[in-house]
Structure formats: structure tokens, C-alpha cells
Design a protein around this nucleic acid. Structure first.
Length: 558
RNA sequence: CUCCUCGUAGCUCAGUUGGAUAGAGCAACUCCCUUCUAAGGAGUAGGUCGUAGGUUCAAUUCCUACCGAGGAGGCCA
């Protein structure tokens, strides 16, 4: 069908083929006649007629072209087109849906980037889940991905924890002690002037490294916190290629800013004792990079971070940072500053992807039963407990591991289903139900496909062969949907929007389940059985490949 | 005050980049397991697409104004 597409992607028009909502309007449709008609002031119906005559018989896959409504061109594909696509899915197998639109690119993708020494809030997981999915999307298009974690290991929040550890004699090897140390430090900072001074002193010491006891606590706590994070990330399916600490980036950024301050070609300038970047010249905000106490701000650290990334991966072509959307405007400034400082040319691109906030639905408070903040971890544990109950009734060999797969699927689905950047209302009730539009629904549909395929094998349904097997005249809706998968992956990558994929997979699962409900697939007496099984296989493959991109496991039995 | 993002069914969200009758799930009400997995399927009901203008053959989609929500705006991140 790409032949048809390319034929229309001309200079005269930006009209593309689209999928009619109604099958009666063909398999593909174009509004080109209306658009051209407007430009040359001619009746669209006449133009459509011309197109029709010119295109008729030009495409081997097209059965006929019809004109409808005010001048739509409706293309009806041949039956064989679909059965060939189904065979193609089978042939491409693991690579079905993959492409090469980013081949040769080396992409630096920074995401997750949490505050160490602090419990991971569910919201922190959003960036990880979206980031991982975007990484995988790029990987399907031939790019080499460098997953980068840029945790904050220095600064006031860290100082609060370290101070808390010191005061409460907490064990820096215990993740729970780190959490309570942070809460203690954070609360005391607000209430007690003297303690506030102490925390600020700790903060200073972290920068200057002048107190061995504090440094030791810090390093031990950092290790604990990192190990814990690593464990959680693995459960979610992420493994980072590089970790760059804010504490490393800080002095490097500091030197960079000073190097480019003042003078004729200075990028930064001194103002009121601070060093700033004049963003207003480019319609952005002016931001302070080094404050009047000569301390680097987050902006400066991000510059240092970039230098470290570039040094580690000198052949990068694209650098993408995923953060919360409150940093949207902030990142426009950072990108402008990086472009100026590092003289980035047009062959390299810098992008920022903003993710939304996560809140809990209708009245549910952001606290668990114990009255603590709802951490990503505790939510996963709760989900898993719920999943175990269901998993026990399944055919799975390993109940615990299935429950874990279901739990992560449920969480990821809720986050990946909607447009990146819009705020996410986490519906606990919905996530825990595992029904309807959900991660487990996709997994269940996949397992169901496999079960049918297994049965087909058992009763000896023949393999589908293009020349020997029978194919029903009418095209099943599920066939059309499966064919579009490749294109969906493409738009998801282009727009950095995994939700397009989620929507499409959900639709595939839903339409397949309807197909399953009315059609008997593995029926030895049905001449179409080989084809129906082939369709089922293509659905399974599509779901599997799609779930992989989302970072969701595809259990074979449930 | 300025800028950014958003407003679609009771709730949570899609809407193929301007196309044909605006779609799902949840919740409500009906049905369907002696048939390949009921975490499923079929159906009913639910909409002035925030409001008002404008551009267009065609607007949920683009432009303007207003209303409402959230965010950002030189020494926090």
C-alpha cells in the first residue's frame, strides 16, 4: 500500500491517505480531490473522476477505486492484499513493526533521574515508564540507544537526609532508615532554626568534602539508594548504560559557565553579583546559572551533565531528556544555552520530553494505609498482592512471577495509555480491577491467542499456504487492524507518543476477542481454519511486539 | 502582569495532524460459559466537543477574545 501512499505525497498537496472509519468507504481514502479542487477552482467531483481514471488498474493490490460524497476517493484493497500481510507478519516475526527511520542514529536518552536519599514517589515512575517505552520505540527504528540516569545526589534535599541520618543514628545501609531520615530532616528544617543551620552546614560539607564522617554517611547512603533504585528499575524493565551524578556535573558546569562569561562573545553575563543567561533575547526566560554566593544552580549542573554525556558518547546524534512538565520552559532555556556553549550544529538535535503529574483519582489521598507517601514500590507490591489472587486461578507455572508481570503491566498501562505530558489521574480502582482497557487485558488476549494456536497444533490444523489454503471472501476486521501496526509504531516514534501504540494494541485485542467469540478458529472441519489460525498467530505476534515496546511482559499462559 | 499546557459521555481517556454518522473502558441496566481461556463477548442508555465569533466546500482539530484548571517566570530543583 505504500505505493499508493507515495503517489500522493507530492508537492501539490499534503493530503495523505487515511483510514475511513466505516468499512463501506473502502480500505483507504483520500480527500485530495477536494483539496486540489479548492486550489484550481474546479468541481472536486470532476477531479476525483480524473484521478479515478488515471489510477484505475495502476496498483496491483487495489481492487477498485470509488468516488463518494463530495469527492472522496475510496480505495478497496484486494482480498489477497490482507492475506499477504498476514503472511508478512509471520515472516518478519520478531521484527514485525520494525523499521529503519532512525538507523545510524545514536540517541542519548536521559530519564528517571530521581532524587537519591528520598523514597521514590509513584510520580517518579512516570518518567521511567515513558522514557523506557520511548527508548524501545527508537530501537525498533534502528537507533542505538544510550539510556542515561542522572540522579540528584547533592543539594539541600540530600543534606536533609544525611543530617537526619546523623542525628537519629540511622543505618545508611538501610533504605527504610534513609526514608525516615529524610522525613525527619525535612520536617525539622521547617520547624527548628538551629537544625536548619545544621542542615545547611551539612550541605556545604557535601560540596567541599571537609567532613569525613559526613562524606562517609553520604557515600554509603548513596550506594544504598542507588542499589534500591536499580532493583526497582529492573523490575520495570530498565537497565541504564550510564549514570551521571549531579555532584560530578556540578564542578564541570561551574567551570564551563565561568569560561563563557563576559567578553565580546560571552554567552553568560554578570548581573547583580550572579551569572545569568539572557533568555529573553530569544523569547525565553532569563535564568541564573551561578548565584551571588558563587554556587552553581541546577542550570549549570545540566551544562556539566551534557559535557559528560558528550564525552562518554562522542558520536551521539540526538540528545533527549525526559522530565516532568513543570520543567518545560526551563528546558527551553537549557537547550538554548547548551546550543550556544557547545556550538551544536544542525546534524545534532536536542529535545525535551515533558511528562505529566500523577495524582490519585477522586478523593483517594496520596498516602498508603500506613500514612506514608504512596511510593512506587508500595504501589507495585499492593498491585502484586492483588494479582496473586487472580494468578492462582490461572494455568501459570509460576504464580509469583506472573503476578509481578501483571502488576507492572497494570501500572504501565495506566501511565502509557494517555498523551505524554498530560497529567495522569491514577485510578487505583481501575488499575486493580485488571479488566477492561488494561495491561492485563492485553496480556490475557495474547495468552488466549497462544492457547488457540496450541490447540490448533494438537488437532493437526494444517499450516496456511498462500496457494493451497482457502481464504474466506470477506476480510475480517481484525486483519485490517493487524496490518496497520507497522504504521502505528511509525507515528508513535515520530511523535514520541507510546499512547498511540497502546490505543492500537487495545483495539487489536478487543477486535480479536470479538472475532474469537463468534468464529470457531481451531476447527478441524473448517476449510478456513488454517487461515484463521494464521490470523491468530499474526495477532499474537503483533501483541507480543507491541507489548515489548511498552516494556510490558507477554506471559504465555494465564 | 507575561508566557506555556490543557478543557470531549457521570468518571478516566482516545480521536488517524482539516474530512464522511465524535469513539473506548469504568460505573448503570439486559443478555451469553455441555463449544479453542468469562481477566472475555453481544446489546441498551449516556454528547450544544468550555463559551462566543472567524477562516474553509468541510472545524473536536486552525485563528481571535472570554471563562475555567494546572504549570513556568534572575539567585530552589
Amino acid at each position: 500500500m505504500s505505493v499508493v501512499r507515495s503517489n500522493f505525497d507530492t508537492d501539490i498537496t499534503n493530503t495523505k491517505l487515511n483510514y475511513p472509519k466505516n468499512n463501506e468507504h473502502g480500505d483507504y481514502a483520500s480527500a485530495i480531490a477536494m483539496e486540489v479542487g479548492k486550489k484550481i477552482r474546479k468541481n472536486p467531483l470532476e477531479i476525483a473522476k480524473e484521478f479515478q481514471e488515471q489510477l484505475e488498474g495502476k496498483f496491483s493490490e487495489i481492487d477498485r477505486i470509488e468516488i463518494a460524497g463530495p469527492g472522496f476517493l475510496n480505495f478497496y484493497a484486494k482480498r489477497k492484499f490482507f492475506s499477504r500481510q498476514i503472511m508478512r507478519v509471520h515472516a518478519l516475526s520478531e521484527r514485525w513493526g520494525w523499521g529503519d527511520s532512525f538507523a545510524g542514529e545514536e540517541i542519548l536518552l536521559e530519564y528517571t533521574s530521581p532524587n537519591l536519599f528520598k523514597p521514590l514517589h509513584v510520580g517518579n515512575l512516570v518518567g521511567n515508564i515513558i522514557g523506557e517505552s520511548i527508548a524501545r520505540l527508537f530501537e525498533t527504528q534502528g537507533a542505538t540507544l544510550r539510556r542515561i540516569n542522572y540522579p540528584s545526589d547533592i543539594g539541600l534535599t540530600v543534606a536533609k537526609s544525611v543530617w537526619g541520618l546523623q542525628e537519629s543514628d540511622g543505618d545508611p545501609k538501610s533504605i527504610n532508615d534513609l526514608g525516615s531520615a529524610y522525613r525527619f530532616g525535612n520536617e525539622t528544617y521547617e520547624l527548628d532554626e538551629e537544625a536548619k543551620g545544621g542542615i545547611e552546614a551539612v550541605n556545604q560539607s557535601l560540596y567541599t568534602n571537609d567532613n569525613t564522617k559526613i562524606t562517609a554517611l553520604w557515600q554509603q547512603g548513596k550506594e544504598t539508594s542507588l542499589a534500591h533504585l536499580d532493583k526497582l528499575c529492573r523490575q520495570l524493565g530498565t537497565r541504564f548504560d550510564a549514570v551521571i551524578f549531579e555532584s560530578e556535573a556540578s564542578p564541570i558546569g561551574y567551570a564551563l559557565v565561568h569560561k563563557h562569561t563576559g567578553g565580546k562573545y560571552g554567552i553568560f553575563e554578570k548581573d547583580d553579583g550572579a551569572i545569568i543567561f539572557q533568555g529573553e533575547k530569544n523569547g525565553l526566560h532569563t535564568r541564573v546559572f551561578i548565584n551571588s554566593q558563587d554556587l552553581p544552580t541546577y542550570e549549570t549542573k545540566d551544562l556539566g551533565n551534557f559535557l559528560l554525556k558528550q564525552k562518554k558518547y562522542p558520536n551521539w546524534t540526538r540528545s533527549i531528556t525526559v522530565t516532568g512538565n513543570e520543567q518545560r520552559e526551563y528546558f527551553q532555556v537549557i537547550i538554548a544555552a547548551i546550543r550556544a556553549v557547545f556550538e551544536i550544529d544542525n546534524n545534532h538535535s536536542l529535545e525535551h520530553i515533558a511528562t505529566g503529574f500523577l495524582t490519585l483519582a477522586g478523593g483517594e489521598k496520596m498516602s498508603s494505609r500506613k500514612g506514608h507517601v504512596l511510593t512506587g514500590e508500595s504501589l507495585l507490591i499492593d498491585l502484586q498482592e492483588e494479582a496473586v489472587i487472580r494468578a492462582k486461578e490461572t494455568r501459570a507455572d509460576d504464580v509469583q512471577s506472573l503476578a509481578q508481570q501483571i502488576a507492572t503491566a497494570a501500572l504501565k498501562y495506566q501511565i502509557l495509555r494517555q498523551t505524554v505530558g498530560s497529567n495522569i489521574v491514577f485510578n487505583k480502582k481501575q488499575a486493580f480491577s485488571f479488566e477492561g482497557d488494561s495491561g492485563p487485558y492485553l496480556q490475557y488476549s495474547y495468552a488466549r491467542c497462544l492457547s488457540v494456536i496450541t490447540k490448533a497444533k494438537e488437532i493437526g490444523i494444517a499450516h496456511f499456504e498462500e496457494d493451497n489454503s482457502a481464504v474466506p471472501n470477506t476480510v475480517y476486521p481484525i486483519e485490517r487492524l493487524v496490518c496497520r501496526f507497522e504504521e502505528t509504531v511509525g507515528t508513535a516514534v515520530q511523535t514520541r507518543s507510546p499512547h498511540h501504540l497502546v490505543t492500537h494494541l487495545t483495539e487489536i485485542a478487543s477486535v480479536f476477542n470479538s472475532f474469537y467469540a463468534v468464529e470457531r478458529i481451531a476447527d478441524a472441519s473448517d476449510p478456513y481454519a488454517p487461515y484463521k489460525v494464521a490470523i491468530t498467530q499474526s495477532v499474537a505476534q503483533t501483541l507480543k511486539n507491541g507489548l515489548w515496546i511498552l516494556g510490558v511482559a507477554a506471559p504465555e499462559r494465564m
